[in-house]
Amino acid sequence: MKGIVTVIGKDKVGIIAKVTGLLSGMNLNVEDITQTVMQEFFMMMMLLSLPDDADMKAISEKLDETGRALGVHIRIQHEDIFNAMHRI
């Protein structure tokens, strides 16, 4: 399955390094990545490929922990929630 990671918060050095480091530590592959900074506001979106039986709760908790340390919000969501909302 595909997961979408979003990182939103105040910009600082090392956000991408920390997040991608964490993902590679969990053996999760990033397939696409976009990132912008608007008025010191950091926004990043990553498309991941995940095994179908991935423990989303555990991954989400780890991302949350890293997010708190960095002072940003990090979420991982199955891409189907976005498809459901925005595609008929």
Binding site: T6, T34, M45, R75, Q77, E79, F82, H86
Partner: peptide, 16 residues
């Protein structure tokens, strides 16, 4: 293909 704006819209709905 999902647009960035759509993804952020969903995230904002949940977070804010």
């Amino acid at each position: 293909m999902l647009q960035k704006s759509e993804i952020y819209e969903t995230v904002r709905m949940i977070e804010e």
